[in-house]
Design a protein around this nucleic acid. Structure first.
Lengths: 215, 215
DNA sequence: ACTATACACGACCGATCGGTCGTTCTTTTT
DNA sequence: AAAAAGAACGACCGATCGGTCGTGTATAGT
């Protein structure tokens, strides 16, 4: 039952480590980075608590790795696919839709824990707070840059408040997870998608670049 | 130092109980209803842990009371003031603005904990989950009703998707708290206000009912 | 002034928290 | 084949969790 050794280097626990990390991110999205307990994590990942400490020095190291792991997933599943779409308003919409699809996949069942942790760690300076803040502001800055690109391409009118638009896309995407618990995923995700689509169509100099609302 | 006896009935610890409850709500907005610990709460409220248990049977009772207390505050500080505004789109905007002002006051420094608790308690049936879900859906239903009223008054075009509009107002209001931690309150609250104002002005049959954007 | 009551306290409880330790088993290196 | 280096375990640690108990005390009603 040896792990597939993809290269010459060290192997064994990597699969286990990755599996634990994935569970940790999922749990943190529900309970928060701080509310995540190592006992529940170990049980959920099928290892003992001391098995966990073979991979991480302490809880803080796990939290840091969890932030990095989630950031990497965010990039792979949301940013990269959207970057294959043409720049401008279509890419903005693609980013929003990829995010909803990512949430629907259940990797972050409670929504992105950056947003909970941003509050949790606000008054507790340290590397975890820094990394969470960094991940969040990178995402907001990225959204804003894409909006600015759309302005430069002439797909949005000059003078468009790109930071404002980034705020709205962020808000409408994140809120979906919470409301989905109450009203059902399909219904709420449709609303979340339509909200941004409408907003972009209303702003766009050429709305025909975007799909129709009923699509 | 006797409490003001507003009526003939029981008095003494009420002030203390109210003070504890207020602190509990504030803490729960940051750490979640579940992440709230009685030790921190007792310390923050200046009582002993056993002093706390003079007022509540257990943590669950406190959580229930906290939900009710927050709901009441929500009504007093957001709903009631907005109900004094004329029905229709002006009232919708007033609701959004009152919410931002409420958040700015710091009663719920982490944002409304309904939204965190909705995720926290999702897979744990019980009275707390029920009450949280009830509070959230009451708020969404109220927003939707006000939007429907605006349609009936002719301030929004017939056929407007009122549930969609309620979703957007909710999302744009709640997200502000989180982003405010990162980017500063004034900046983000301005964005949150402008987002809903723009949306309403774009929809309205008579935009002059609403203030200018630059206001 | 006396008594009943409710509030608040410090001390304490079992369970769980994050974390350590010594051991065992497997894998990699030599 | 022997030795070195992970990886995982069960047992256990002090601290903190939610919660109990007995006591002291301030107040309300008589």
């Amino acid at each position: 039952m040896a792990d597939t050794k993809t290269d010459g280097r060290r192997i064994r626990g990597e699969r286990s480590r990755e599996a634990i990390l994935e569970r940790a991110v999922a749990l943190a999205s529900v309970h928060g980075l701080d509310g995540l307990t190592l006992g529940r994590l170990a049980e959920a990942a099928g290892v003992s608590k001391s098995g966990f400490f073979a991979h991480w020095r302490d809880k803080e190291q796990l939290q840091l790795d969890a932030v990095d792991w989630a950031s990497r997933q965010w990039t792979e599943r949301i940013v990269k696919p959207a970057l294959r779409r043409p720049a401008g308003i279509r890419r903005l919409l693609a980013l929003h839709e990829a995010r909803l699809a990512f949430y629907a996949d259940g990797v972050l069942p409670g929504g992105c824990f950056f947003f909970v942790a941003q509050v949790e760690f606000d008054d507790r300076p340290g590397p975890v707070r820094d990394r969470v803040a960094q991940a969040m502001s990178r995402w907001l800055a990225f959204l804003e840059r894409q909006a600015a690109e759309a302005v430069k391409l002439g797909e949005l009118p000059p003078g468009t408040d790109t930071a404002q638009l980034a705020y709205e896309i962020e808000a409408l995407g994140e809120a979906a997870v919470v409301q989905a618990r109450l009203l059902g995923r399909d219904l709420v995700y449709t609303r979340a998608r339509r909200a941004v689509l409408r907003r972009l169509r209303a702003l766009a100099t050429d709305p025909s670049l975007l799909p129709e609302e009923s699509a």
